[in-house]
């Protein structure tokens, strides 16, 4: 499928748009923005006790490619282990969506959002263990 079709498909029917409770200790929230274009993206994951991403939601204010990148990212990470999700690279998104060079920064934003959500989740887990001890 050409770039346009896939991106339009994701941009017009984005998957997993929404919010998870950010105070839930099993929820990690990633918040990223691109200063060069003014896009802002929030990506959230809910992780089960055995480290599997049960649910992922996002909210993106930006161009079609940014929405498509984050929509695809949430689709991919659902059901994956946190470590597997962490291994996703922006080039994977570029290849899947056939993103043109001028839109590569959108995929970078999505990769950063996944990482940032995982980092937030881990920080919460560490805090929880610290509190339990």
């Amino acid at each position: 499928m050409a770039y346009s079709e896939k991106v339009i498909e994701h941009a017009e029917n984005p998957r997993n748009v929404g919010t998870l409770d950010k105070n839930d200790p099993n929820v990690g929230t990633g918040l990223v923005g691109a200063p060069a274009c003014g896009d802002v993206m929030r990506l959230q994951i809910r992780v089960s006790d055995d480290g599997v991403i049960q649910d992922a939601k996002f909210k993106t204010f930006g161009c079609g490619s940014a929405i498509a990148s984050s929509s695809l990212a949430t689709e991919w990470i659902k059901g994956k282990k946190v470590e597997e999700a962490e291994a996703i690279r922006n080039v994977d998104i570029v290849n899947e969506l056939n993103l043109p060079p001028v839109k590569i920064h959108c995929s970078v934003l999505a990769e950063d959002a996944i990482k940032s959500a995982i980092a937030d989740y881990r920080a919460k887990q560490t805090a929880k263990r610290g509190a339990a001890e």
Partner: peptide, 22 residues
Amino acid sequence: VGENHEPKPGVEFLMEMLEERE
């Protein structure tokens, strides 16, 4: 300045922007 040359904005600022956009 431009892509890859500017510092990433802080979480607090992004949170605000997201809320405003919402």
